[in-house]
Design a protein around this nucleic acid. Sequence first.
DNA 1: AATGGACTCAACCGCATAGAG
DNA 2: GCTCTATGCGGTTGAGTCCAT
Length: 340
Amino acid sequence: MGHHCCSKQKVKRGLWSPEEDEKLIKHITTHGHSCWSSVPKLAGLQRCGKSCRLRWINYLRPDLKRGCFSEQEERIIIDVHRILGNKWAQIAKHLPGRTDNEVKNFWNSCIKKKLISQGFDPNTHNLLSRAAAAATPPHRNNKKKTNNNHTTSSVFTIETSLSPSSTKELVSMDMIKASLAALSPFPHTNSSTTVLTMPQFQTSWSHLYESACNYYNHVPIKTNIVYQNHSTSTGTFGIINENCMWGVTGFEPHHEFGPSNNIGHEEMQQGAQVQLQEENCLEEVYKVNDLHEFNKHGRIAENVTFDDSSDFDFEFVDSELIPCGIYTNVNSIDQLAWDC
DNA sequence: AATGGACTCAACCGCATAGAG
DNA sequence: GCTCTATGCGGTTGAGTCCAT
C-alpha cells in the first residue's frame, strides 16, 4: 500500500542508493525544493516526493549533526519530553542538527529504557512501581558500557526546599517548620545526612505535605523534595504551585488535593509550560537546605537520606505523591531554555 | 563457526492540517 | 463551505548488524 502520491506512478522504495542520493543533493542544491512533489521528476528519481523529502531532511541535509548524542543533548531531550511528550519535531528544534526521526529513535532505543531501568515511567516521568521497573530488562548497551553504579538498594537523599519571601509566606512557613520540627530527631548518619526508613519517610512526608497543603490556597509555595539514588541523575518531587499554574491558564484550579482531584497529565504539561514562561513562578521555587539550620535560622538545609534498600515503597510514592499534583523530574527543569 | 535473539535506524505508513481553488 | 493536494508529524516496520550462547 502506498500513499496517494505514490499510487499513481511506479516508484522505487527501500534504501536509497548513493546514485540516488547524489541526484537528490545535486537537484536540491541547485534548484531548491519549493515543491517536493515535483522534485523526483525534476531530479530524475523513481521516488515519490514524500520519500525525497524524508531522505533530504533525515539524511542528506548538510547541516545535520552526525554521531552519538551528547549527555547534554540527552538531558535536553528528557527535559523537553517531560513537558511536551512525544512531540519529536518540537524536541528536535532544541537540538541543532538533529532530526525528529533521530530524536525519536534515540528515545526509543536508549533513553526510554534507561529511564525505565532507573524506575521512571518514560511517558509520565513519574516513578514506576517497583514491579514494573523490575520487569524491564537492562538495556544491552547499558549493560556493556556502564560502570554499574546502580544497586538494587534505593538510597534517596531528600532535600526540602522552601524559603519565605513575605510576611504571609513566613506565617505558613512557620507552620511547615513546626511540622518538620515535630519530625525530629531524625536518625542521623552524619552531620549533613539523615537516613530514614520507608515508614519514617512516609511520616515525614505526610507532615510536610499536610502543612504545605493547608496553606497552599493562600500562599504561593512550591516545595521540592530532591531525591538522589545511586545513579548519577538527580530528580525532584515537587508540589506544583497551582496559584501560578492555573492562574494564567484559565483552567479550573484544583485547590483540594488527593487522588480524586488528579491533575491530568496533559493539563500538567500545559501548566508546566506556562509555569516555565513565567519568571515570577520560577522565582517561587524556594530553597531550604538544612533542617537543622532551619530550626536555627528559619531555613532548612539538610539532606535526608532514605536508606531503605529493601523497602523503598515506589507504590507509596506513586499513589500518594504523584496524584496529589506532584511532579517529578530527573534534572533541573529550570535549566531548560524555553523558546517556544 | 553457526545460530537466534536483541538492537539500531532508515524508511514507510497513515493521519492531521494548511492552503489553494 | 467544500474538495483536493501538499506537507508535516508520530507511530511502526523491517533489513542489517551486533552479541551471547
